Simulated scan of single mutants.
Amino acid sequence: MTLTSSSRNYAPARPRLTSDPQQDAVHMAHALRLAKRGLGNVWPNPAVGCVLVHDGRVVGRGWTQPGGRPHAERMALDAAGPLARGATAYVTLEPCAHHGRTPPCAEGLAQSGVARVVSALTDPDPRVAGKGHQMLRDAGIALTQGVLAAQAAELQAGFLSRLTRGRPFLTLKLASSLDGRIAMANGESQWITGPAARAHVHALRAQHDAIMVGGMTARTDLPQLNVRGIQTPQQPVRIVVSGQALPPLAPQGPDHGPLWRVEGSCDQILADLAQRGITRVFCEGGGRLAASLLGAGLVDQLIGYSAGVMLGAEAQPFVGPTGWEHLADAPRFRLVETRTIGPDLFHRWRAA
């Protein structure tokens, strides 16, 4: 990227800072914790965190604000003020290099006089894609890349998926009995898991852009599909996959996000959601939709809550018919995390 003559004047008298891998990891972990606050609230923008450190002391920090602006770097620079000069900036994603509603963050960092920038990931957005890093180098700023890259990629999974795969990152949530049942034969299902697990579900909903269910679930359960019990800057979009008319679900308002009815093949639905800016989808069933998503290989993460109860073969399974004839046809997932939440077992799996 070609810099203007004024841009070339950012660099004089910048101190040369040496890297300390251990301290870099500590401050980047701090920035990642800040970035997590933006999940579910900033789409289609990435949830970014930024920490400014001067002489070993944090002088400014920020994270992407609801709606996607201001950006994390701008928040941290404003908090630091003149203390940004000579500081090290820890950013969880490459600073943006393009002019949008706000000037490029790479330019803002250069103008502030920071001496060094540590980033976790290169932004795959074609408008950035290394250009932000190059702007920093051209301004005479020391640059360290790839610090806690794996952790940052995990946090940015939705943003990265939308840009590189053309679809959101999809989590399938299943709450069931020990024998894999989600409801009695007559439809009774409240409540299989305990209140602690249900509260945990709401915390996960708040970190997603959208909550998705199938049409049968919408018509049978009349779910609210919102975040309750915790404060969130904005409610997730409610998505119902159905080719039929929907029952009268709650209207959009401060307690409910917009309601979108979608239809078509699962891969086309997810591609359309990506086009509309959605990066992270939390699917809560039902069984037929879960089977379709699994069969199409579109489930990136499984979240399970297992209660200490057995419902029997006549109860409803959490995955509908799949048509798989051989064990080799079934998708495999790797266990990432397991722990107890109240009396229930929580387990998280990623696509193998």
Rank of each mutant, 00 (worst) to 15 (best):
E337I: 01
M212K: 13
L32A: 07
H54W: 05
D20H: 12
I182P: 00
P44K: 07
V281G: 15
T2S: 13
H30P: 10
Q65L: 04
G243E: 06
M28N: 04
T122S: 03
L174W: 13
A197K: 01
Q190T: 12
L293I: 02
P247S: 12
T220P: 01
V213L: 08
T88D: 14
T144G: 03
N9Y: 02
L163M: 08
A271D: 01
I182F: 04
A203H: 15
R228G: 07
E314T: 01
L302K: 14
A210F: 00
G180S: 13
F333H: 15
E263F: 05
V58A: 01
A250N: 07
S177M: 13
A206Y: 01
A196Y: 04
T217M: 11
Q252Y: 01
G243D: 12
A110P: 00
E73Y: 05
A315C: 11
V336K: 13
H200D: 07
F333N: 14
R116L: 02
W43A: 13
L249D: 09
S119G: 06
R181M: 06
L52I: 01
S161H: 10
E284F: 07
Q301Y: 03
G108I: 08
G253R: 08
A150W: 12
T164Q: 14
L32V: 03
R127D: 03
I269L: 12
A328Y: 00
R162M: 06
H30E: 12
V336H: 09
P317E: 03
D329M: 00
L270Q: 04
V281Q: 15
V42C: 11
P21Q: 00
D272S: 10
K131N: 04
L222V: 12
R238K: 11
A139Y: 10
A307G: 08
L298V: 00
G229W: 12
V147L: 00
T102A: 03
G194W: 15
